[in-house]
């Protein structure tokens, strides 16, 4: 038993109304598949873990507590102290143009 096309179109119309899709019986390319896609930006943007509170933040927030000790920072400062004591530390920052020019040029 063949169903008439008008009946099928009616059914499609109702279907589109219920599921809120576009009624497009001729199968025209209206680009609706783009509109149907979900946005994936938020999922992609949250790939890398964000920075949470660091020890420095804690120290800044509660200066009255000195239980928070940043071990990595302490290690770094200690290393610098040792280097300085051996005279191998980084040179002092030059403040003026003449000072910075002093040692420039070819070394002989």
């Amino acid at each position: 038993m063949a169903v008439p096309r008008s009946r099928i179109l009616d059914l499609m119309k109702v279907q589109c109304r219920i599921f809120s899709t576009t009624f497009n019986p001729e199968g025209l390319r209206l680009g609706n598949k783009i509109l149907r896609q979900r946005l994936k930006g938020p999922a992609l943007a949250s790939y890398y873990p964000r920075k949470v509170a660091t020890i420095q933040d804690l120290q800044k927030l509660y200066p009255e507590f000195d239980e928070f000790i940043d071990e990595a920072e302490e290690d770094r400062l200690e290393g610098i102290k040792i280097l300085k004591a051996r005279g191998k530390g980084a040179p002092k920052k030059k403040r003026t143009a003449e000072e910075s020019k002093k040692f420039k040029g070819k070394k002989r």
Binding site: L28, R29, L30, G31, K33, I34, L35
Partner: peptide, 8 residues
Amino acid sequence: RYIIRNLS
């Protein structure tokens, strides 16, 4: 992309 794909 929608505008580009919409042939109407």
